[in-house]
């Protein structure tokens, strides 16, 4: 039996009285792309942040290559994080650095690579996401939203990580640019052979990126299966979500006149 690349077992997290994650169980295999769908505020981002050690889960285990990583600190945590790449929802580019320095950041600071060598790799990765070398000299604030997402993708793959997280990769982009980003994600991930975990509520993106889909609702994974099975999941919550219907078991707390 092969060990899952990433496995969450009973991960729970609450903030005050609000339970955000209530025992999440999820597995990502080697080289597999898993997409977690779910509405806003269902705990998708908190789940990713728990894996990355940005938030400490209240209970549960997070296993990477079979080793529990909850509570790692210091150099052990830095070493563990070197396996990860992450594309943030708002790109999270460092606006005090130029574009190529953003892409090369993990190589220079994380791996101790010389700036010249790191710059060459950064320019190559920018080319990989369809951006020319001269873009590397610009500041992030001079780029459009779509270009910033591409730079963030180049930064996420620059260190050739084993696991990549995509947090709402197409949010805020027009449909064509969203599809371009989806294609780039699929290509880059295929090239690297990395395992990926994506969270989104964009169904077009989810269908394109995923090998397997899971749905999170009220802090639980309520359905998980191959992407071809999603239209016949037999789960009323999944059906309502993927068809974007207001009526169904998922209710929104909206005040009506």
């Amino acid at each position: 039996m092969t060990t899952a690349k990433l496995k969450l077992e009973g991960v729970a997290k609450h903030f005050g009285h609000k339970k955000v994650l209530d025992g999440i169980d999820l597995e990502v295999g080697r080289g597999e792309s898993v997409v977690v769908i779910g509405g806003s505020g269902t705990g998708k981002s908190v789940m990713l942040k728990c894996v990355l050690g940005l938030i400490h889960p209240d209970r549960g285990q997070i296993l990477v290559d079979g080793e529990n990583v909850v509570g790692l600190r210091g150099s052990a945590k830095e070493e563990y994080l070197s396996k990860f790449g992450m594309l943030f929802q708002g790109s999270a580019l460092f606006d005090s650095l130029r574009v190529w320095e953003n892409v090369a950041f993990g190589l220079i600071q994380g791996r101790g690579m010389k700036r010249k060598a790191a710059k060459d790799i950064a320019i190559e990765k920018l080319g990989r996401v369809g951006l020319k070398a001269d873009v590397g000299e610009l500041s992030p604030s001079e780029l459009s939203g779509g270009m910033q997402k591409r730079v963030a993708l180049a930064r996420a793959i620059a260190t050739e990580p084993e696991i990549i997280f995509f947090d709402e990769p197409t949010t805020g982009l027009d449909p064509i640019m969203a599809d371009v980003i989806n294609d780039l994600i699929v290509e880059c991930v295929k090239d690297l052979g990395a395992s990926t975990l994506t969270i989104t509520h964009d169904m077009a993106s989810a269908r394109k990126i995923a090998d397997r889909l899971a749905m999170i609702y009220k802090g639980h994974i309520i359905w998980c299966g191959h992407k071809d099975q999603i239209d016949n999941s037999g789960n009323a919550y999944v059906d309502q979500f993927i068809h974007g219907r207001a009526d169904g078991p998922i209710t929104m707390d909206v005040l009506k006149p």
Binding site: K49, L52, G53, L54, E78, E79, L81, S82, F84, G85, M86, F88, Q89, G90, A92, L93, F94, D95, S96, F105, G106, Q109, G110, R111, R155, T159
Partner: peptide, 25 residues
């Protein structure tokens, strides 16, 4: 203002995921 903006735009989280300790950097 600078660090606060970095916090709310997730740049500090990004720093951590790039194996860089924000306290050190």
């Amino acid at each position: 203002a600078e660090l606060g903006t970095m916090r709310v735009t997730e740049q500090i989280d990004a720093l951590t995921t790039l194996s860089t300790n924000p306290f050190k950097y």
